[in-house]
């Protein structure tokens, strides 16, 4: 099974997808239209690129600070949480799933990305 299929089987996950770091393709499953999944993948990729830039800057200030390479990020809203680890994203219904469990699963399933991929 793919990571996206695994994620969709988790409680509360309503949609999940992957994007290419170079930005030329994406795939998704779940409760998003093709257009909305495209918007989601673009926003997720942009934020992933941004946090990688930030981590590199912090690393230059304090080597081995523990931030680099960043594994992912979360945006927690009142109803939904966007969870991103590596180049995989998913949308979680807060009332139906556990963020701790989801992050733990994604961190374990997705290895740290080599810096030359970004």
């Amino acid at each position: 099974m793919s990571i996206v299929t695994d994620l969709l089987a988790k409680p509360g996950v309503i949609a999940a997808g992957e994007y290419a770091y170079r930005g030329d393709r994406f795939s998704h499953r779940g409760a998003l239209s093709e257009d909305h999944a495209r918007v989601a993948s673009i926003m997720c990729r942009a934020t992933t690129m941004s946090v990688n830039m930030e981590a590199s800057m912090l690393e230059a200030l304090q080597p081995l600070s523990g931030l680099l390479p960043p594994r992912g990020w979360l945006v927690h809203g009142p109803g939904y949480t966007v969870c991103v680890v590596a180049n995989v994203f998913c949308l979680l219904d807060n009332s139906k799933g556990s963020i701790n469990d989801l992050v733990g699963f994604m961190r374990q399933a997705l290895p740290a990305v080599p810096a030359d991929m970004i």
């Binding site: 523990g66 990020w73 809203g77 939904y80």
Partner: peptide
């Protein structure tokens, strides 16, 4: 869709912290 705004928290997951 609703339930994303306003942002409640942003979390950056680093390598160690």
């Amino acid at each position: 869709m609703e339930g994303f705004y306003p942002i409640q928290e942003f979390t950056l997951i680093g390598f160690d912290w």
